[in-house]
């Protein structure tokens, strides 16, 4: 195993995919965030406080730059997990090359790490969250994320252990076990406590573009790591033997 090469291609793939996420968000997500910020400003003015528009414009430019930096950091950190999962699951993943295998695993991880938690606790634009409840909401979101992640890990182990004895039935058993765990979590965990006071159009459009750009990010990450893998082949090591004839 070429460990250093593996770590490098893992982190570089994530950094590139994350930077692209930050850039795509400038076009697809920012219009909705700007609309939500405008609602926040209107509420502030209505409450009798003044808003310095020039200062606000500069501040928003700074935050939009921060979004690209945050994309690079988030992409790198998510890819660290993606790399670990990829190396342990590569032999079991369908696909004739590492690009296909990477894309398939990225799809699974997008579903487990983003989509399932987002169905219980969807992304919200500014003007929705109450600052007083942020730690409570973080704990709920993290609990859902951890349940989904560990449930997926558990059923992956179950899938392997059933490989010899129940090769066909495991295709039904494994997704059923995951679905039951997630259904229980959806029922047991409380709802987001914050009241939603913005238009449902803005809310739904924001959630849809958020899911689209996160899906694009995962897709790029899978293809990039698979492509680098095919070039670098970090799982291979070469040993030279001297033979005397």
């Amino acid at each position: 195993m070429k460990t250093v090469a593996f770590i490098l291609i893992t982190l570089v793939s994530g950094a590139i995919a994350g930077t692209i996420l930050g850039l795509i968000n400038q076009i697809l997500v920012e219009p909705y965030i700007d609309q939500a910020i405008a609602i926040e400003v209107q509420n502030t003015v209505a409450s009798g406080e003044s808003v310095d528009v020039d200062e606000l414009v500069q501040y928003r430019l700074w935050q939009k730059g921060g979004e690209i930096v945050a994309g690079t950091i988030l992409g790198t950190s998510i890819s660290a997990l993606f790399g670990i999962v990829y190396i342990y699951s590569r032999d079991s993943l369908p696909g004739s090359n590492n690009k296909k295998k990477g894309l398939i695993l990225a799809g699974i991880m997008f579903f487990v790490i983003f989509l399932i938690p987002a169905l219980k606790y969807p992304a919200n634009p500014p003007a929705v969250g109450d600052p007083e409840t942020i730690e409570y909401r973080e704990s709920l979101y993290t609990t859902m994320l951890v349940i989904s992640g560990f449930a997926a890990l558990g059923v992956a182990i179950l899938y392997r252990s059933l490989g010899q004895t129940r090769r066909e039935s495991r295709k039904i058993i494994v997704p059923t076990v995951y679905a039951v765990i997630i259904a229980l979590a959806f029922v047991v965990l409380p709802a987001n406590p914050d009241e939603i006071i913005i238009s449902s159009n803005l809310l739904m459009n924001f959630r849809i573009v958020s899911a689209i750009t996160m899906g694009i990010f995962w897709g790029i990450l899978g293809i990039l790591l698979g492509s680098f893998w095919d070039i670098v082949k970090p799982h291979e090591t070469r040993a030279t033997k001297l033979r005397t004839i």
């Binding site: 996420l21 930050g22 968000n25 997500v29 920012e30 965030i33 700074w62 935050q63 939009k64 921060g66 979004e67 930096v69 945050a70 994309g71 950091i73 988030l74 983003f114 938690p117 987002a118 606790y121 969807p122 992304a123 919200n124 634009p125 500014p126 969250g129 109450d130 600052p131 942020i134 909401r137 973080e138 709920l140 979101y141 924001f206 958020s210 750009t213 996160m214």
Partner: peptide, 16 residues
């Protein structure tokens, strides 16, 4: 929090 604010919202993290 403020610098990463927009991506927090866009990536689905709780924010305000």
């Amino acid at each position: 929090h403020e610098f990463y604010h927009d991506l927090r919202h866009a990536a689905g993290f709780p924010c305000h």
